[in-house]
Design a protein around this nucleic acid. Sequence first.
RNA 1: GGGCUCGUGGCUUAGCCAGGAUAUAGCGCUGGCCUUCUAAGCCAGACGCCUCGGGUUCGAAUCCCGACGGGCCCGCCA
Length: 583
Amino acid sequence: MDDFESEVIAAVSAALKEMGAEGIKFAAEESSIEGSDVSVPCFPMAKQMRKAPQAISEELASRISPSGLIKSVSAAGGFLNFCVDPSELVKETLGEICSKGRGYGSFPRSGLRVNVEHTSTNPTGPIHVGRARNPIIGDTLARCLGRCGYDVTTEYYVNDVGKQVVVLTWGVNNATPEEVAAEVEEHARTIGQNERPRDKTDHKLVANYRVANKKMESDPAVKEQITSMLRGFEAGDAEVISTVRHTAEIMLDGLRETLSNINVTLDRYTWESGYIADGSARDVVERLKASEYAGTTDDGACFVDLKDFGVQGKNTKFTFTRSDGTTLYTTRDLAYHLDKFTRADRVIDVLGEDQKLGSKQLCSALEILGSDKMPEPLFYAFVSLPEGKMSTRKGVVVYLDDLIDESVERAYAEIAKRRADMPEEKMREIAWTIGTGAIRYNIVRVQPEKQFVFKWEDALNFDGNSGPYLQYVHARACSMLRKAGEFRRDTDPSKLTDEYELKLVKVLSKYGSVIRKAGDEMKVHLMPAYGHEVASAFNQFYAAVSVLDAGPRRDARLTLVECAKTVLADVLDCLGMGAPEEM
RNA sequence: GGGCUCGUGGCUUAGCCAGGAUAUAGCGCUGGCCUUCUAAGCCAGACGCCUCGGGUUCGAAUCCCGACGGGCCCGCCA
């Protein structure tokens, strides 16, 4: 269909040239009426051509003769309607899928490097469902960009600098097992739940963190120890820095395990402390100080004034050093971005919407630094629970690990119910594929900027517009191909004439343009929508025509099944979901 | 107080950036379909002043202004 649209545009352009209206603006769009595939509204041309839209469409229609993929043209009330030649489309689409296989829909390698930073949660506790939007969007985007021809690197920025991790580190190294156990009990009491943290570092260490926070309040000696660690950190004390980093590593082990359970792995982990150690944060300070926007407060803290950069608010000052001269998170973030710019042509940051102002300030500061590149932020709105905002303190929280367990269990129960024949191990494997796929699909299907209320019933819905719906179709197709055995690929259009066959082919032919939009334009939510479209078209085809006993049409239909399976498998992979051969 | 953002059937959601012909899909609901390739499926049906009010336009869910409602942000935190 992508090619069809290009042909339509070319044909209309040529006809307009004949009419002496070369270069006039128009657009081709998917038709919203039956019996037409692509339409060109002629209303926008009316003014410039000083002619009624109806007349224009009629004249254009008469000047365009069917050729290539264009089967027919007609004018209807100011619209120019084009029908695609089904047999050409079948031949072209299926032929391309057969020859390219899983590469169908992907674009040639451009040599451009893109860096996608995502997740980057503070290593101070487990990932909850709210944060889960980040790795899922980020990982899906990275997979789409790869198909757009980029060399993609994914990256996690580890915040191992600052009070939070230092406090955690103190708690991990100094809290006694008794204190930690008591804290676990007390927390369970306050939130009124019986659950104890699971045996996984990111969950277990939270109690140490709480103990440290409490003792810091109540015990001046502890407070002094922590403050002194912080000072040591700022002063570049190698031992303190490495101890803190070690704590972050341990936490990160737990986080990595969770991420890999939803099929997310990152290529690179970059440590914030590295930009202090290598002096690059210092360089940023010096360069900003030298700029014409720089200023100093009475206490000696340095800032740049961003009022000329469209940054709103009562305070347009962007502070980049404390009064004692030490750097701030934002300063290190600047150094980090400058570093990323040396490693990639496009730099994408997947961020929570609370980072919007910060991101804008970052860009302004980069402008002051004379950077020729800017990060492209992709923001997502927060996830809340029906009972309100997530709050670990109040126990109003759903951890990603719990969601994964629940979803996989639910999938296991389903499969055990319908596939008594299957060995236990196989059932477990498929349950994981389906359970985690359902989660990823459910989260990535809604536009990132839209607020998201997490509901168990939606997350565990395996019907309709869901991950398992797509996987089910894949399994169905695999099952048919398994039963068919050997067959000879056949893309003869005269054997694929049913309306549902053509509909399926039309959907398959759009894959390339969907990938483009999902990747290049960062509209990741289009991918699940497209997958649903493919699966739905397949199910209709499946219900309407028989394949295995289709006589002379058998091979052609099997070819179509195989092509649909190929595309669906690639869509599933884009979404980071497994493509089960049975379920 | 200021800024950003979202508002589409009972619920969730596509379309909005690049305005077009009867507004997309799912859940739920009503009814039908398994002696045929996996019913996690298919078919049919009901359900909409696209939050409200103005404006631009031949034409607005889409663009502009305003209101209302939800979310986020306005640290020498990270």
